[in-house]
Design a protein around this nucleic acid. Sequence first.
DNA 1: CGAAGCCGTAATGTATACACCTTAAACAAA
DNA 2: TTTGTTTAAGGTGTATACATTACGGCTTCG
Lengths: 247, 247
Amino acid sequence: MMESESQERGQSQSERALSGIRELLFSGVFEPGARLSEPAIAERLQLSRTPVRAALARLEQEGAVDAIPSGGFAVRKFATDDILDAIELRGVLEGTAARLAAERGISPAQSMSFRTLLSEIDALLQVPGEDLDHEAFTACNAVFHELVKESCGSSVIARELDRLTALPFASPNALLMVQRDLPEFHGSLVLAQSQHRAIVEAIELREGSRAEALAREHARLARRNLEVAMNDDRIKARYPALTLVTA
Amino acid sequence: MMESESQERGQSQSERALSGIRELLFSGVFEPGARLSEPAIAERLQLSRTPVRAALARLEQEGAVDAIPSGGFAVRKFATDDILDAIELRGVLEGTAARLAAERGISPAQSMSFRTLLSEIDALLQVPGEDLDHEAFTACNAVFHELVKESCGSSVIARELDRLTALPFASPNALLMVQRDLPEFHGSLVLAQSQHRAIVEAIELREGSRAEALAREHARLARRNLEVAMNDDRIKARYPALTLVTA
DNA sequence: CGAAGCCGTAATGTATACACCTTAAACAAA
DNA sequence: TTTGTTTAAGGTGTATACATTACGGCTTCG
């Protein structure tokens, strides 16, 4: 029915609700812990309560929103420890993907994808730090982690990683803004790339345990980034999602 | 309206829908891959489409049900490889929980819980194989894995483990029926218990890496159980959920 | 001045109505 | 017989109505 003239065409109302609420959440419009009123959101996004409710239920499963025992949902308060654990867990999962990829072997096509991507990132890092195309680096970084995720050929692991990185701060490029805003951290991008290369090498040489350890260590970079971001008011000011992080 | 005289009081309609559909799914009522008609389920469970729909959406996130691109949901077909990967992943997650527990240390109370539980299981295994109280063993086994899950004190990891073990076959005691129905596998329960003991020991000695490796290996027992179950028609006949496993 | 009880407002959970779309079956034509 | 077409039935997505329940402010009493 319906399909009235809404903002973004081609999507269902539920999809609009989902992305709409996500955007509201992570732009810091709501207080952490505040109740999310379905009618209020529905009016704000110009749709009925039904898709809003569906989106909230989904966001609860994703961990972006907490269910209130007495009913309804509230903005989730993220403890710093939770985020650190989530990053650690991403390292574990990516490590498992890398290990399985090494143990099971990857196709020549996958190997080629890795290789060309590594070269691409190398090229990006060739220019002096200040001129770095940060946007492109972030995109390449995302692709790398996608490749790792798919390299093991397990839909189970891919699904779990997708779920985990739906969380705002656990995503592979969630905290790359640190390197953009604080030039003194440009060097860690070079380190990251050397880790990328080592992970690919380990996978190709079927060194499962090494691949796993490297991927875990690689995730620790994000940990450092989080610590930096939490202690830097410039960054906190520029990234409203960080207001959801308490303690 | 609502709160009419339904079967199980004290629960919401959504909860009834969730458990009702789960039960229908894993009792093999539906063909694998079959569409799940919301009106049909609603009538069968004596409630309206709304909670049914909510439950289906949740079951999709849990992985029990697949979303059909054109709309609606279908019974998920489980590939054997998917289940093996899920078991492997449970091992990885429990391994991580055990490692973190070792690294971070556990409280004396937690240590005591582990110790008393281990003794309890020892007592159960004291009797000759045929007389084993299988029900009690299954319960104790579940408690052990709960303790491991909580030993690391990370809600993030606990949440992920809960999600994963919501899947029917990845759960720690999902395939213990093998040991009940095939007496020749009673010995593996003794092995499992020795692994339990070693895991606890490693955690207490702060040997993180060993604890992780042991927990992973422990999960491999379930892998063997699955292989046995898939090749034994007596078991397949007695456990309808296995009909959802294809290939 | 503080605490406890009460009432009104608002929000949730659920049911139901309805338009669009998918699907499958019946039918016609080659 | 097979293929293409039409049509009818059923199913989904969404909106809305309604009863119940939670929450906040106000009053009243200790």
